[in-house]
C-alpha cells in the first residue's frame, strides 16, 4: 500500500471534474422541483445530452458547439415530459420513468456510429501567472470552462430564487399552484420553462461526461449519475449551495476511493465502491435534519378548473 502516490492537489482538481455532471443535473432538477414538478427523467435527459453533444462536437470539431447542442437536445427531449405531464396531465412519476427509459434507448441508437471515437478536446483555462501558481493554480484556475459555468449556474440559481421576482413566482407556483393561478400567474407556462431549463442543465451534465470526464461515447455511460442528482436535490433540502456541497462530496469520495483502490488499500473493492453513495447520503441526511422544505405542490398536476 502506497498512499504517498496520492497527490492531494490533483485529487481536489479531479474531484471537481467528477462532481460537475452531478452538479449540473442537480441544479437543473432543483429548479424544476421548486416549480412543483417532479421529473424523474434526469438520467434520460443526461444521456441524450451526452450523445448529441458528443456527435455534434465530433462532426463540427468544436466542443463548444457540442455543449450548446447538448443543452438544446436536453431541453427538446424534456418537451416529451412537458407534453405528457403539463398538456396531457399524465402522472409525473410514470412520465419521468418513461423519459429515462426512452432516453437510454434513443441514445444507444443515435450513438451507434460514434463508439470508440475520440472527441475534440476542450482547452483548459490558462491564465498566465494564476494558473501557474502552486496548489491554488491547478485547483482554482486550471479547469475547463464548463466546470466554472456549473459553479456560476449554482450561484445564479441561488440568487434568482432568493432575490428576484422571477424566483419568488417560481417558488410560489411550486408551493401552491391554485393560489398562484388565482393571483393570475401562468402556472403551466412557468412550469414548462422550468422543465426545459432542467432538461438543458441535464443535457450539459451528460455532455460533460462524454466530452470531458471520460471522454468518449459508450452506451449507457451516465451510469446512474442522473439518479444521484435526483437524490441530491432532496437531501440538499432544495438549496443550491447544499447541492454543490453534496455533488463535491460525492465526487470527492468517488475520486478518493478510486485512488485508494489504485494504492491497494486492504479494504474490499465493493466497500470502496459503495462509499460515495453511503457517505453522501449520511452527510446530507444529517444536514437536512432541519425542517423539511419540499415544495408543497411537488409532483401534483395543475388543472385550472379544479
Amino acid at each position: 500500500m502506497d498512499l504517498s502516490a496520492i497527490n492531494p492537489v490533483l485529487l481536489i482538481a479531479s474531484l471537481m471534474v467528477a462532481a460537475t455532471p452531478i452538479l449540473l443535473a442537480a441544479i437543473g432538477e432543483l429548479v424544476v422541483e421548486k416549480s412543483g414538478v417532479l421529473n424523474l427523467g434526469v438520467e434520460g435527459m443526461m444521456i441524450i445530452g451526452a450523445v448529441s453533444g458528443f456527435a455534434i462536437a465530433v462532426e463540427t470539431s468544436s466542443p463548444w458547439l457540442g455543449f450548446i447542442a447538448s443543452a438544446a437536445a436536453g431541453a427538446v427531449f424534456s418537451l416529451l415530459f412537458v407534453l405528457l405531464t403539463q398538456v396531457a396531465q399524465a402522472n409525473q412519476v410514470a412520465s419521468g420513468l418513461a423519459l429515462t427509459l426512452s432516453g437510454l434507448g434513443l441514445s444507444a441508437l443515435l450513438g451507434q456510429n460514434y463508439v470508440g471515437i475520440r472527441p475534440p478536446q476542450m482547452g483548459k483555462l490558462d491564465i498566465p501567472l494564476l494558473s501557474d501558481l502552486p496548489v491554488v493554480g491547478p485547483i482554482l484556475f486550471g479547469h475547463d470552462p464548463i466546470l466554472y459555468i456549473g459553479i456560476a449556474l449554482t450561484a445564479g440559481v441561488w440568487a434568482m430564487l432568493k432575490f428576484t421576482r422571477a424566483g419568488l413566482v417560481l417558488r410560489a407556483v411550486g408551493e401552491n399552484h391554485d393560489a398562484a393561478h388565482a393571483l393570475g400567474y401562468k402556472v403551466i407556462r412557468i412550469r414548462i420553462l422550468a422543465i426545459m431549463f432542467g432538461g438543458a442543465c441535464a443535457g450539459l451534465g451528460g455532455a460533460y461526461i462524454s466530452l470531458i470526464r471520460v471522454p468518449q461515447w459508450t452506451e449507457g455511460m451516465t451510469a446512474g449519475v442522473g439518479w444521484i442528482a435526483l437524490a441530491l436535490v432532496v437531501f440538499a433540502s432544495w438549496k443550491p449551495w447544499r447541492a454543490l456541497l453534496g455533488a463535491y462530496l460525492f465526487g470527492g469520495v468517488t475520486v478518493v476511493q478510486l485512488n485508494l483502490q489504485a494504492a491497494g488499500v486492504a479494504i474490499p473493492v465493493e466497500y470502496l465502491a459503495m462509499s460515495p453513495y453511503v457517505i453522501t447520503i449520511v452527510v446530507l441526511v444529517i444536514l437536512s435534519a432541519d425542517k423539511s422544505s419540499a415544495p408543497a405542490a411537488l409532483g401534483r398536476n395543475f388543472h385550472a378548473s379544479r
Binding site: L168, R171, A172, E175, N176, A179, A182, L183, A296
Partner: peptide, 24 residues
C-alpha cells in the same frame, strides 16, 4: 380577499404580499 387558496405557507408575509402586487 379570497376565502381559500391564496396564500403560500412556506413563504413569509412580505413575499406573499409581493406576489399579489404588480410592481412590488
Amino acid at each position: 380577499v379570497f376565502q381559500h387558496f391564496s396564500l403560500f405557507d412556506a413563504l413569509n408575509v412580505a413575499e406573499n404580499i409581493a406576489l399579489g402586487m404588480e410592481n412590488p
